[in-house]
Amino acid sequence: MNLATDLGGIKLANPVIMASGTFGYGFGYESLIDPGDVGAIITKATTREPWTGNPPPRIAETPCGMLNAIGLENPGIEVFLNEHLPRLESSGAVVIVNIAGRTFEEYVELASMIETVRGISGIEINISCPNVDFGGMQLGTAPDMVYRIVKAVKEKTHLPVMPKLSPNVTDIIEIAKAAESAGADAISMINTLQGMAVDIEMKRPVLGNIFGGLSGPAIKPIALRMVYQVYRAVDVPILGGGGIMSAKDAIEFLLVGATAVSIGTGTFVNPRLAMEVKAGIEDYMRRHSHTDLREIIGAAVL
């Protein structure tokens, strides 16, 4: 059985990818998940300089989901390259670096810095974080901005480039087309949906940042719908995810056109979820007499 897949030039042994911000730099879950066993690891968003992130509280549980407003806290690209990447590389993991910045120049500089190091297989451009003033969602909600940043990053690197799209847009197809025409090798979707929670006893928003990003099974139907729409509109492969809690959920994403699937919030609930999803996809393919993953990608798109 062939679970291998190609995400715009990023060769994956299997289609299960650890989503950015939910798996640190690959070793937070110690022995529970070997980063070399999943298709790829997408790192926590990395910026040029260290970011301290948002004031707490940063998370709130919601029905079938959670809100987060971390604010892209990270130690900066140099710490990532010097301290985290070597260990990831030696684990045999396929590493995709998620980059974020406050200016176009910062994205471009990050892409150039990554270009020169070994052990990185692709770049995910974070243009969809709802929790920062600039460098997140604002970049990802206007098609011309998406076009400009994808093009600028592409010009600086030979690595496959994959923008992560925000669902907080009027027309996701328009954004995806802009990314594709700028040269994106793949599209990652979806980031969190902007939301909020209120503490009625304190009479104030729960989150320190007021607004946060909703993730978890609550958003799965929206993510599926958007992957379906984008699959029909563009030719580049899609990394699909949003609320995957089981192999069944992951298979739904593959059937609506995702070439690979990302596991995020589900890992917090079940740290072994990615391995269970991988095994469950194999079971499904066996039951349906498929021998190659490509046979099921987009199979439910009418």
């Binding site: 911000g21 939910t22 798996f23 640190g24 937070g28 879950y29 110690e30 926590k44 260290p50 301290t52 992130g53 948002n54 004031p55 707490p56 509280p57 940063r58 998370i59 709130a60 549980e61 959670m66 987060n68 971390i70 806290e73 919030t265 890992t267 917090f268 740290p271």
Partner: peptide
């Protein structure tokens, strides 16, 4: 105590400002 998501230090959800030290959480 704090609200937590991952419990293992990857999600950075249970941030706490400490006195002294660096500016981070």
């Amino acid at each position: 105590e704090s609200n937590m998501a991952c419990g293992v230090g990857v999600c950075l959800g249970c941030a706490l400002k400490l006195k002294g030290g660096n500016a981070g959480y």
